[in-house]
Simulated scan of single mutants.
Amino acid sequence: MTVSRALSDAFIPELPNYYRGKVRDNYDLPDGRRIIVATDRLSAFDVILTSIPFKGQVLTQTARYWFEETADICPNHVLDYPDPNVVVGTRLDILPVEIVVRGYLAGSTGTSILTKYRNGERDMYGMRLPDGMRDNERLPNPIITPTSKAFDGGHDEPLSGADILAKRLLSEEQWDTVSNYALALFARGQARAAERGLILVDTKYEFGVDRDGRIVLADEVHTPDSSRYWLADSYAESFASGERPRSFDKDFVRAWVTARCDPYKDAIPDIPDDLIEQTSHIYVQAYEAITGNIFAPDLSEGSVLERLRKNLRPYF
């Protein structure tokens, strides 16, 4: 997993309407298609920390596996995969609500149900959780915990279904559609994960509307970045002892940084190569465990960017 194969930037000047996201570089074509390139950038603490070789390929190919596994449940934005790091999709008007589905009392962010539960909250996201639940306990049924999408760089805010309708973020028909899609996608994800010895704990979905008004699944689906997976054989013992079940721990870099500085105030030190390579191995391990496929890194051309330019030339 050579560090020199990391794709830090996917700017190709011959392609139109470039937009750089935290991890993905995007190009909007005049005919309504969007080219989405998953780079290897690793984002945390509101900055790019480093680039992890093959991370972009892992994310794209994991999402491809799930888009194909769930195409019978709902339409998705995919049109083509011209490169291992690239999806060409239909350009959508993204809905202003992020749909998070949770199957367990877990999480660490301010909007997670575990954080809120530990703080004494029981009423959240338009529902009530019972007293006496323990960290990482399985919920009676998966629940949807939507948040507002902070397009302006602000913080996501928890929402209930009633909030979504009252604020006219979605119509009642749209809310019903995305709710049904999300729960069906999650059920399929949990079932497939169980076959692989994994537990799909929670995940986020992003939906958009195409030019015909259809609601379409966008972005990525059930990847290691958008989802929490636990190793099923560790769950019972870990839950009994009050520990977090084992997972694909990709936070080596984040932990290494926070042990050495305040990343929101201090200059972030250079990330050592051995830590980058270790994280790359974890992403590959996650891909193979989630999909059941052997990861085949594309080492063609002198660099990933050269390969991208070759494979995307028909779009110039």
Rank of each mutant, 00 (worst) to 15 (best):
S4T: 14
L7R: 03
L7A: 11
S8P: 05
F11N: 10
N17R: 10
N17C: 06
R20D: 04
G21K: 14
K22F: 02
R24P: 05
N26E: 14
P30D: 13
D31A: 10
G32E: 13
R34E: 10
D46C: 12
I48W: 00
I48K: 04
K55F: 07
Q57T: 00
V58W: 02
L59E: 01
Q61F: 02
T62H: 00
E68G: 06
E69V: 03
I73R: 05
P75E: 06
P75A: 13
V78E: 03
L79Q: 12
P82K: 06
T90E: 11
R91M: 14
I94K: 10
P96G: 12
P96N: 04
L105D: 00
L105S: 07
T109F: 03
Y117Q: 07
R118A: 09
R122P: 00
D123R: 11
M124L: 14
M124N: 01
M127K: 08
L129P: 03
P130A: 12
G132I: 07
M133N: 08
N136C: 08
N136T: 10
R138C: 10
P140A: 09
N141Q: 13
I144V: 14
T147M: 04
F151S: 12
G154R: 02
D156M: 06
E157D: 12
P158I: 06
A162N: 07
L165I: 11
R168H: 15
D176W: 01
T177L: 05
Y181H: 15
A187H: 09
R192E: 15
A193P: 01
A194W: 01
G197P: 12
V201N: 05
F207T: 13
G208D: 09
D210E: 08
I215L: 06
V216M: 02
E220H: 00
V221R: 05
S226N: 05
S227R: 11
W230A: 06
S234F: 01
E237V: 07
E237K: 12
A240P: 08
R244N: 12
R246P: 01
D251F: 04
F252R: 11
V253K: 09
V253W: 04
K265M: 10
L275C: 07
I276P: 01
T279V: 08
S280N: 08
Y283V: 01
Y287T: 10
A289C: 10
T291L: 07
L305G: 01
E306S: 09
R307A: 07
K310E: 11
P314Q: 13
